Amino acid sequence: MPLAIAIAGPGGPEVLKAVDLPATEPGPGQARIRQSISGVNFVDIYVRSGLYPLQPGHNVLGFEGAGIIEALGADVGDLKVGDRVAYIGHPIGSYAEVRTLPVSRLVKLPDGVSERVAGSTMLRGLTAQMVLQKTYPVKADEWVLVHAGAGGLGQLVTRLAKGIGAKVIATVGSEAKAGIAYEAGADAVLLHTSGDWVEETRRIADGRGAHLAVDGIGGTMLSQTLAAVRPFGMVASLGQVAGPIPPIKIEELTAPRVIGLSRPSVLAYANDPELYRQGAMALMAALQAGLVNPIGAEYELKDAARAHADLEAGRTTASVILTM
């Protein structure tokens, strides 16, 4: 019987348990996929820990994956058995060898894009597109500040921003990770543990600060990030791996700062059919054109708890995957 990784309730990595998950026959508008890969993302940790609630009836984690269609229901358009596909979004459940999904969620993979790459890029790739094109449409020569520049999302934001012609300041947590951020294309890399990174960001970015800041760290970092953005710029708060974010007073965003603060959600973005279609097509085209999304760590499906522990502890860089 196919294997899956489920939780009975919130907690640490130890609550992740291997279970048998019977394969289900796809109904109208559905496809059953034999998966080869699942991405592991911080949003999975938020669900596992209880920060984000589980959907009723769904206790298998994971929002993105890729594989091959092995069965189809009726009314599935031009999809066929044997097609390679990837996806992101609800319903949760990509930590599984086999799963059944609505075909509206599936993205057919073009030639030259592997399941391995697509299945580890959908969530972060669409997140990067969302913040660079929807949250704040970045233009050539504008400055983007991205935290955790050596991480999977940080590297994709950097590469896609550089493709637009923007300039990127990345922050990292250690000197050892600086080279990774530079390799991704960052124009400058700063330690966010240093006491002067905000001032340095403003100095480098024309003495005024970044046009867009992408903060997936959270905690007390967000209030510092606000100070690194120029007037009429934007801060995109994407997560809180450093812990809960203290309340932000509206006065902190008004004159003389006059900046915007957004809390965009890639899952909400992917739930919009047109945005999902456009974003997925653009991402596949970028991957075909050579967009690099390195995989920093891979684990067998049964070792999902170790993957969570390593990601949570900051022992990984780039994308983290589970293989089937």
Rank of each mutant, 00 (worst) to 15 (best):
V15Q: 00
V19A: 00
P26K: 15
G27E: 12
I33A: 11
N41G: 03
V43R: 02
G62S: 10
E64A: 05
I69D: 00
I69L: 07
D75W: 11
V76T: 14
L79T: 10
A86T: 02
Y87K: 06
I88A: 12
V98N: 14
R105M: 09
L106Y: 04
K108E: 04
G112T: 05
T121Y: 06
R124E: 13
L126Q: 11
A128Y: 13
M130V: 05
V138S: 12
K139R: 12
D141S: 11
G151Y: 01
G154D: 08
G154T: 13
G154K: 12
V157I: 15
I164G: 11
K167E: 03
V168Q: 00
A170I: 07
V172Y: 00
G173N: 06
E175D: 15
A178R: 09
G179T: 14
G179V: 14
A184P: 05
A186F: 01
L190C: 01
W197E: 05
G218Q: 06
A227F: 03
V229K: 13
P231N: 11
V235G: 11
L238H: 14
V241K: 11
P246W: 15
T254D: 09
P256V: 09
L275A: 12
A282G: 08
A289L: 02
V292L: 08
N293D: 10
A297V: 02
T316W: 09
T316Y: 11
T317C: 08
L322M: 05
